[in-house]
Amino acid sequence: MSQLSTLLLYKLFTKKMLTKRIIPCLDIKDGRTVKGVNFVDLRDAGDPVELGSAYARQGADELVFLDITATVERRKTLAELVKEIASHLNIPFTVGGGIKSVNDVSVLLNNGADKISINTAAVKNPYLINELAKNFGSQCVVLAIDTRFDGNDWFVYLNGGRTPTDIKAFEWAKQAQERGAGEILLTSMNHDGTKNGFAVDITRKISEALNIPIIASGGAGKKEHFYNVFTEGKADAALAASIFHFGEIPVPELKQYLKEKNISVRF
């Protein structure tokens, strides 16, 4: 490139930053959207495709669909739903819930999911992370960690938060990165459903130690909570459900607030 055109290009370039992502999460049961408060009570909040498209129009940066259907029909139903979502949605989305194998992932990606998230199955068989990264690339492998602080340390919980383990969340996150996970979705069970703010400390600790993006989850109740988790918590993205579903904090209002606070967000 000639010197003149190089100079011109750099002069014209307005340096901006990679934005912090706002991610509404839709829990899915039998093809409908629900939200568990502390993983137990469920409320119906609509059709996933409609809701997802509405979020995309509002400026959500990404969506996560977590399937909590327990029936044997679930795999087929989920694949159909993913196809429907993919054909309507023009932003990236992640699908999680009960994913156990390379084949499960292959079906979801082939139906148009951009990423998948794995949780319990990866703890039971950590090599699954390696296999998924090798087969489909790290960019589509999100490791979800449900964690609870017991007064001493943050431990990993399985099966939607019902089964405790003696695995430390920090160590598990590091191991997942080494095995090829592309992102970590970190949910604090102490904070989830409380609306008292995200778990800033553990989010920051993991985000600073790892070289892959961290999505903070659990506890969003106010716009300030997002600001805190992006600044003090060093999160790359923040996920929430009910505050978006019930219109308590509309996505555009949240983004406007963050922009005014000098957080880089997409409009």
Binding site: L9, L12, F13, T14, K16, M17, L18, T19, R21, D61, S138, Q139, G182, E183, L210, N211, I212, P213, D236, A237, R266
Partner: peptide
């Protein structure tokens, strides 16, 4: 100093 991969929304210019 930043995380790799570059994942998310960034702006394009020129």
């Amino acid at each position: 100093n930043e995380k790799v991969p570059h994942v998310g929304w960034n702006s394009i210019a020129n």
